[in-house]
Design a protein around this nucleic acid. Structure first.
Lengths: 217, 217
DNA sequence: CGATCGGTTGATATGAATCAACGTGCGTGG
DNA sequence: CCACGCACGTTGATTCATATCAACCGATCG
């Protein structure tokens, strides 16, 4: 990645940090790739995934503004996953060495990282549970609820209308179903008046019903 | 937990750390429980899991000697998961406050925690991929391979014979299948001469074949 | 000796995958 | 401006993988 960046020498003293904009659909990082930088999402959506040799792909999570690609990249120079832009996306890269020296001198950063680690671990555990134990309906409801929470934490939402840039293929790859089955389940939810998802907008009509289906307690 | 421990006042100055032995099958920690301690497995096997209200259970991972229950417990006093002893188990509990003060003064501890976090995250990502994308055979082969690696990292193994205390129910709960299907798949592996699993011993006859089935690349 | 637990096996049911066709909107190039 | 291709979603028919239900076995234990 770092190779492509505009070093922006005009901002003197800031060469440990850089920003860039990536178009929708572009792959940003690849498994096994080594990078000197720790990346943060500043705007737009991305996702982290594993690509299997036979074409199957598992989306591990979606990256929203404020997310690091992964807490692990603060310590590990090699990605163990790939990352793609879902929408056009702004990312900020910071030199790992710089992040680490700041970390050593500033306990607040450690606290922030720890918080992030806790949140990621819990989210991963819950998703693992959803994939291992849940039916198709439950998984999809769970994914939507989880993303709604994350969206709502970042922007005010009204009338249960969420900007929602995932295609059905992304939902499928995240919850381990085929796109056609995702389509069927979403149609079912629509028919039952629970929610509607189209044109990048998710509208929720029966939140309690949705929680009954997809909440992981 | 801490309530039950023998405070062992004979070891003066060591009241920030204590050890205990737990019998097989006993639950050690429960979701939402608060603890002052960070726990480490010293001997035996345990597992971390989510219990769903309807009885379903997802085993998140298995805990082997040297493992913390979770890196997150160093920072978070509340467990977001439950833990059970699989075999009889020895665990060591350390006061979180003490761990944190040591952490502040000793970068080696931070490095160790970071390593552990990286390993856990990668393992979780891989397991998530297995659950989302893999067939029954692939999942079981993957789980066994993963555990074999972890066992081999802790003790010399010879002749591809592993001490393996899981019941089929545990395998089922870890990979999201029913015990009867686990039985069928294991029988199939046995019939094909790939491996044999019984009496707490896993014997692997065709490692390459197993890796062909269950390796996550 | 009966009860319980863990595993095996067979018959059947079911949820999701697969295969295929079709519709719609959209961008692109003629 | 139109025609075409392509991405995305929908729907129907069928297949397939795994779950469910049930019976049974052997070992272990009180």
């Amino acid at each position: 990645m770092a190779k492509h960046l505009d070093e922006s020498p005009s901002l003197q003293g800031a060469n440990w940090q850089h920003h860039l904009t990536v178009p929708a659909g572009k792959q940003i990082a690849t498994r096994s790739q080594v990078s000197e930088d720790v990346f943060l999402i500043c705007g737009g959506w991305g996702f982290r995934f594993f690509q299997l040799p036979d074409g199957r792909r598992q989306i591990l999570n979606f990256l929203l503004p404020g997310d690091l690609f992964s807490v692990t990249s603060v310590f590990e120079e090699r990605f163990h996953f790939s990352v793609k832009a879902l929408t056009e996306i702004q990312i900020s890269g910071m030199r790992r060495a710089e992040v680490q020296t700041r970390l050593a001198g500033n306990p607040d950063i450690l606290t922030a990282l720890a918080k992030s680690c806790i949140a990621d671990t819990e989210a991963a555990d819950r998703m693992q549970t959803a994939l291992g134990q849940y039916s198709a309906e439950e998984r999809i409801a769970y994914l939507l609820l989880h993303l709604m929470q994350r969206i709502a934490a970042r922007s005010v939402i009204s009338e249960q209308r969420y900007r929602f840039p995932l295609r059905q293929q992304h939902i499928a790859d995240a919850v381990g179903l085929t796109p056609v089955h995702v389509s069927r389940v979403l149609s079912l939810f629509r028919d039952r008046g629970i929610l509607e998802l189209s044109d990048g907008i998710l509208k929720v009509f029966k939140l309690p019903e949705m929680e009954r289906i997809g909440s992981l307690n």
